[in-house]
Design a protein around this nucleic acid. Structure first.
Lengths: 140, 140
DNA sequence: CGGACGATGCAATGCTATTGCATTGTTTCA
DNA sequence: TGAAACAATGCAATAGCATTGCATCGTCCG
């Protein structure tokens, strides 16, 4: 098969299209989480709205997850194979570098499971750390 | 003294003004974290920009802290007495209710201190949980 | 062939945050 | 007292991201 990514999409019940394959490729190629504008740029000059809807579809199908890192723009990163839209496996923390403004996944840092008092019903927990990433910290 | 809030402002090196006293009062009266629009509404019809700058000043002086709960709008809540702009004491988690869209502080839930591998330098950690708050959970 | 459906792309809009600039109000000092 | 100096306020305008409406295109299927 020319495009191994097709299987990835089909496995998530996402109809493969050229656009979607391109977006998926970009996400796979970049370790850091990407914003809508990032993807748009990396794709050359794809239509912003189409990319937006592509990422929305990916999110709804459990292929990527949204990260709100406080930079103002939502970032997206690929999920692990076992994730579903409702239940994300291996919920990990994220790191936002205040210098280069890159957001990276910290797969080794699990989000703690915290019991809340009373009738609270927790659906999702996000743990975002801010500071200097390895590159920027060593660059001074 | 007619306005006990004045002392609070002065202790933070914030010049007391009627506007600032009003904003402080609103923040003190409401347990949940408030967005800019919330404060604007609760104040009657104060100028949005002035409220924005008031909250910015409060944040810089360590009187309130910003909470990015993923709702799209930044929320603000009062700090504990010991907080400074650089070092917030008692860093606690926050809870965002997906039903009533209210964000509340969880003073009893401390943000875990996590050691990161390599050269990472952590400046700030935020822990936001989403789900149903006590009101909405019991309301079905 | 032709309808149905999904994907795409342009245009337009909404919402939040933010800056510029003029005005007001208050403090300070001669 | 009066005027300069400074901070706070408020209106207007702008920027940036997200989102919706609608028309078009392409493909799948009867």
């Amino acid at each position: 098969m020319a495009h191994p990514q097709e299987d990835t999409l089909i496995a998530r019940q996402i109809t493969p299209t050229p656009m979607r394959l391109l977006v998926l490729e970009v996400l796979q190629r970049h370790p850091a989480a990407l914003s809508l504008a990032d993807v748009e740029l990396l794709l050359g000059h794809a239509d912003r709205i189409t990319v937006h809807r592509t990422l929305k579809t990916f999110t709804e199908k459990g292929l990527v997850h949204r990260i709100e890192d406080g930079s103002g723009a939502v970032k997206f990163a690929l999920c692990e194979p076992g994730c579903t839209p409702e239940h994300h496996q291996d919920l990990h923390a994220h790191f936002f570098c205040t210098r280069c403004r890159e957001t990276s996944c910290l797969p080794t840092v699990a989000v703690p499971i915290i019991a809340l008092p009373g009738a609270y019903q927790v659906q999702e927990t996000s743990l975002v750390m801010k500071g200097l990433c390895e590159n920027c910290a060593s660059a001074g």
